[in-house]
C-alpha cells in the first residue's frame, strides 16, 4: 500500500471507530452533567454532578432490576449449559429410538420465527398463572435449540474411545459428560454461555408481556418503562438509567471481546 492510501485508510477507520465509540462516551459523560449542559459535544463535564444517578435511583427500583436481570440471565445460562449439554450429549453420542426426530425438530425450531409463537406462549403463561413471576421469565428459555446444536456439533468431534475408556473405568453417562466432555468443551461452553446470557440480558419484548410488577422487572424492561413513563424527566437521568445496563456489559466485553464476537456472530448465523 502506498503511504497516502495507508494514511487515508487509517483516517477512515478512525472516523468509523469514533462513530461507534463516541456516542457511548458522550452518553457516559452526559450522565455526569447538569441538565443545561447535556447538549454539548464536550466529553468532560463542566460541572461534574451525580445528581442524575441519585434521581434515577430514587425514582425506580433499578437496584432490584439489576438483581432480577442477573438472576434471570444466570439461571437461564446455567440451565442452557447443564440441561442443554445433557441433551446434546445424548443426541450426539447415544443411540436411541427418537434421536433422528429430536434432531430434525431441533433444526426445525430454528426456522420458526419468534413472532409466530409469541402470542400463544403469552396466553400459555397467562393460563398457567405465571404472569408476574420469575418462572414466566425463565422457563420458556430453559432450553435453546441453537445451543443444543452447537454443543452437539462439538461433542461429535470427541473420540469415541474416550467414552469407551470412561465406561470401562466405571463412569455413568452424566459423569462422562461432566468430567470428560465438559473440560474438553470449554470453548464451546463459553460461546454458548455468552450468547445465552447476553440474549437474556438484553431481552425486552418478553418481559414487557409477562411482567407488570415493577419489583420483578428486568433492567432493560424497567429502563424502557421508565423512559416511556416519563419518569426520567431529563435526558441525563434516562441515560444514567441506561448506564446501569451498559456498564457491566462493556466491562465484560473489554476483557472477553474475542469470545463475545465469536459467540454472538456464531449464534446469529446459526440461529
Amino acid at each position: 500500500m502506498r503511504p497516502v492510501v495507508r494514511a487515508g485508510l487509517y483516517a477512515a477507520l478512525t472516523l468509523a471507530a469514533l462513530t461507534f465509540i463516541y456516542p457511548f462516551l458522550w452518553m457516559a459523560s452526559s450522565t455526569l452533567k447538569p441538565p443545561f449542559e447535556v447538549g454539548s459535544l464536550a466529553l468532560i463535564p463542566h460541572d461534574l454532578t451525580f445528581e442524575n444517578y441519585r434521581i434515577m435511583w430514587s425514582r425506580a427500583p433499578f437496584g432490584r432490576a439489576l438483581l432480577n436481570s442477573v438472576f434471570v440471565a444466570s439461571t437461564i445460562t446455567a440451565s442452557v449449559l447443564v440441561l442443554g449439554s445433557m441433551t446434546a450429549y445424548a443426541m450426539a453420542r447415544l443411540t436411541f429410538p427418537g434421536r433422528r426426530v429430536l434432531n430434525a425438530v431441533t433444526m426445525g425450531v430454528l426456522l420458526v420465527p419468534g413472532q409466530l409463537t409469541l402470542i400463544p406462549l403469552y396466553t400459555l403463561i397467562v393460563q398457567l398463572g405465571w404472569i408476574d413471576t420469575y418462572t414466566a421469565l425463565i422457563v420458556p428459555y430453559l432450553f435453546n435449540a441453537t445451543a443444543i446444536l452447537m454443543l452437539r456439533q462439538f461433542f461429535l468431534q470427541i473420540p469415541q474411545s474416550l467414552i469407551d475408556s470412561a465406561r470401562m473405568d466405571g463412569m455413568g453417562e452424566l459423569r462422562i459428560l461432566f468430567t470428560i466432555f465438559w473440560p474438553l468443551a470449554r470453548p464451546a461452553l463459553a460461546i454458548v454461555a455468552i450468547f445465552t446470557f447476553m440474549g437474556s440480558w438484553n431481552e425486552v419484548l418478553w418481559p414487557l408481556l409477562v411482567v407488570r410488577d415493577q419489583q420483578l422487572m428486568t433492567l432493560p424492561q424497567l429502563l424502557t418503562v421508565f423512559q416511556l413513563g416519563g419518569g426520567a424527566g431529563t435526558l441525563g437521568v434516562s441515560l444514567a438509567a441506561a448506564m446501569v445496563l451498559v456498564v457491566p456489559v462493556v466491562v465484560a466485553y473489554m476483557f472477553l471481546q474475542r469470545y463475545f464476537i465469536e459467540s454472538m456472530a456464531g449464534a446469529g448465523v446459526k440461529g
Binding site: I21, M198, W201, Q221, A242, L245, V249, V250, Y253
Partner: peptide, 11 residues
C-alpha cells in the same frame, strides 16, 4: 465496530 451489537436494543 462490534460494540453496539452487544448493547441492548433498549439502550
Amino acid at each position: 465496530f462490534f460494540l453496539p451489537v452487544v448493547i441492548s436494543g433498549a439502550v
